[in-house]
Design a protein around this nucleic acid. Structure first.
Length: 631
DNA sequence: GAGAATTCATAGAA
DNA sequence: CTTCTATGAATTCT
């Protein structure tokens, strides 16, 4: 825990018996609390998060020049430092903040300005998990609402599932960081994280404005009466912006007409003033960049690029001849590479890889065109070229005989000539709910997905045909010092997106036993561990009476895959108990429940160049690249 | 405290 | 494909 955290604590409830001009008595200004507060645990995410947050919270406050008697600033760090003799005489500090800082309305945004630092690896892991779960709920709920709406009002104008999902979560207190205004990084949100909706940023507490580019604590609610900016979104909406990566010339807001054209001078008020004040106090702002991205669920993508400092501000004449405020933002050092840079890099890798990585490529397609998209092989670590020595197999081959027999069930398919819709036989096979949404993303995990197959009359565009169409994104096998061979994606993988099949030569148990004795390397699909993701897509926190669908039980998957000679890209995915890839069994070209195909999906939004990882069902310590497949 | 105003959204139609 | 428009929600302003 650092002892030197700049922080502003809000003005408490206005003193009723004084006129608006009268300063509030000094004693009520200060609230200092470094003790851990424990409020009764409730079984929801929000409470859990708050409790963790409180553990690491410390507070300092001061009054600034509006109240002439005290002004304490640390000139080196810009920190607002405590004024010890004005310590809050609150006799019951344990009740803080639930009583002394209780918002006027339960849903009102907090005015408590805090910075959370040094939560430690364990704290960060916990925060990350909460953020993950919350994002999962948001996305699942959003997709749920889309599907529900499509079912109810077919063809009618669609609402705003992104905003409705956010509202529903807000009503259920599932928004994160509502009890405080965080300056600096949001625990659990990492540089490079990708979001698809502005409201998703609101839910995370990363940026509280649905449209405005500058988020700030308003002056009337801050301790010194001055507004403080906390985050900005850079998405090119102002013609006078100049974005050079680590340095941004950010235009203040205001002065635009309805068409977004600069039509009058901007004023130093609202967010503009907050930016200026943040600069004055040396308080950093979070920067989120928004830009168009083809193939994204929303056509737009928001990337968290980390913390910037406002180093300069001035009033300038903009391109349209009107006065605009400009702020020079410089990225604070020591942070990981910006997500935006990584995105740009990955994009170039897809079109012109040698221009940015002249050496290290071993192959530009280890699949030899057996996949829809080329699979790169890259190694700038050592001379190993192992993946070249295996023949590439694009889909698992099953033993002859086990699939052949076509009983009545096998032969039958749906008759949906224009694509499957609700009520069709294939939907019923899937427990009354298709496994995928209209973008081909997995909605919820289940024991087995029945895709439409050769016996179905529906076209290839049917929503129930996803994994059978193969790779949709660009994958790269790469050499890493830590994990040996690994796999990463050059595209953004939306949560639930199909990645690839885990491929091998399938063997019956008897065949496998013989091979194991020979020392060959086998993969057992049944061992893939999905416990961590078993409630993936679960909405019981939103709908209290939500019933987990009961899927038909399937016989245990009891085959092994030989990957000693034939394999595909999936074989190089590393193991992690903290995996970002989930395993879903799928049938599409045959109906033998004992031999489903092993399909891999993104468990969360995965930014480009992030290593993919699977839980092979062993602990992290036990794992080695060899063991993963020997086991 | 209620309603108006502001806002670098969003989706779908034109 | 881009541009336009209707609808919208949280927050701040009055």
């Amino acid at each position: 825990m650092t002892s030197h955290i700049p922080m502003v604590i809000p003005k408490p409830e206005p003193v009723t018996d004084s006129s608006p001009q009268t300063p509030i008595p000094p004693s009520s200004f200060f609230n200092f609390n470094t003790t851990t507060t424990q409020s009764p645990l409730e079984p929801n995410l929000y409470t859990e998060f708050t409790n963790v947050a409180e553990t690491f919270r410390s507070a300092f406050a001061q009054r600034l020049k509006r109240h002439e008697d005290v002004t304490v600033l640390d000139s080196l760090t810009g920190a607002i430092v405590p004024v010890p003799e004005e310590q809050d005489p609150d006799p019951d500090p344990v009740s803080y903040p639930s009583q002394s800082l209780k918002p006027r309305k339960p849903q009102e945004r907090s005015s408590e300005l805090v910075r959370i630092t040094d939560v430690g690896p364990e704290g960060e892991r916990q925060f990350r998990e909460v953020v993950r779960k919350t994002r999962m709920i948001y996305d699942s709920l959003r997709i749920f609402l889309i599907l529900e709406e499509t079912r109810e009002v077919l063809g009618r104008r669609r609402g705003r599932p992104d905003s409705k999902a956010a509202s529903m979560m807000k009503e259920r207190f599932l928004w994160l960081n509502r009890d405080k205004r965080i300056v600096g990084s949001i625990p659990g949100v990492q540089v490079g994280d990708i979001f698809f909706f502005r409201l998703e940023l609101c839910v995370m507490g990363l940026h509280g404005q649905t449209q405005a580019g500058i988020d700030y604590l308003i002056g009337s609610r801050s301790s010194n009466g001055e507004p403080i900016a906390t985050s900005v979104i850079v998405s090119g909406g102002y013609e006078d912006d100049d974005d050079q990566g680590d340095v941004i010339i950010y235009t203040g807001h205001g002065g635009q007409d309805k068409l977004g054209r600069q039509a009058e001078h901007q004023k130093l008020e609202g967010g503009n003033l907050a930016m200026e004040r943040s600069m004055y106090y040396g308080i950093e702002v979070r920067v989120v960049r928004g830009f168009k991205y083809e193939n994204a669920v929303s056509s737009k993508v928001y990337v968290y690029d980390g913390l910037f400092r406002i180093v300069d501000s001035w009033f300038d004449v903009g391109k349209s001849g009107f006065g605009v405020f400009k702020f020079r933002l410089e990225r604070i050092g020591g942070q990981v590479e910006m997500g935006t840079s990584v995105l740009k890099f990955a994009k170039t890798l897809k079109t012109n890889p040698l221009s940015v990585r002249p050496s290290g490529y071993i192959s530009f397609d280890i699949s030899n065109r057996k996949e829809n998209a080329p699979v790169y092989l890259f190694n700038d670590v050592d001379d190993d070229q192992e993946p070249l020595y295996y023949e590439y197999l694009a889909t698992t081959s099953f033993p002859r005989g086990i699939l052949g027999g076509s009983n009545g069930d096998n032969a039958s398919g749906c008759e949906c000539v224009s694509g499957c819709s609700s009520g069709c036989i294939c939907e019923r096979k899937n427990g009354g709910e298709f496994a995928y949404d209209y973008n081909g993303n997995l909605i919820r995990m289940r024991p087995l997905v029945h895709e439409c197959g050769p016996g179905c009359k529906c076209p290839p565009t049917c929503r129930n045909r996803v994994t059978q169409k193969g790779l949709r994104s660009r994958l790269e096998v790469f050499r890493s010092v830590e994990t040996g061979w690994g796999v990463r994606c050059l595209d953004i993988l939306h949560a639930g997106a199909f990645i690839c099949e885990y491929v091998g030569v399938a063997l019956t148990r008897e065949q496998a036993n013989i091979l194991t004795m020979n020392g060959d390397t086998l993969v057992y699909p049944a061992r893939f561990c999905s416990d961590r993701w078993k409630d993936w897509g679960d909405l019981s926190q939103v709908f209290p009476d939500y019933e987990r669908p009961s899927y038909r039980q399937i016989p245990p998957v009891d085959y092994a895959m030989d990957v000693s000679k034939l394999r595909n890209v999936a074989c190089y995915i590393s193991h992690s108990n903290d995996s970002n890839v989930i395993v879903q069994m799928v049938l599409h070209d045959h109906n033998n429940l004992m031999f489903p195909r092993v399909m891999l999906f993104a468990a969360e939004n995965i930014p480009p160049m992030t290593e993919l990882s699977l839980d092979y069902g062993v602990s992290d310590d036990e794992w080695s690249p060899k063991l993963a497949i020997c086991n």
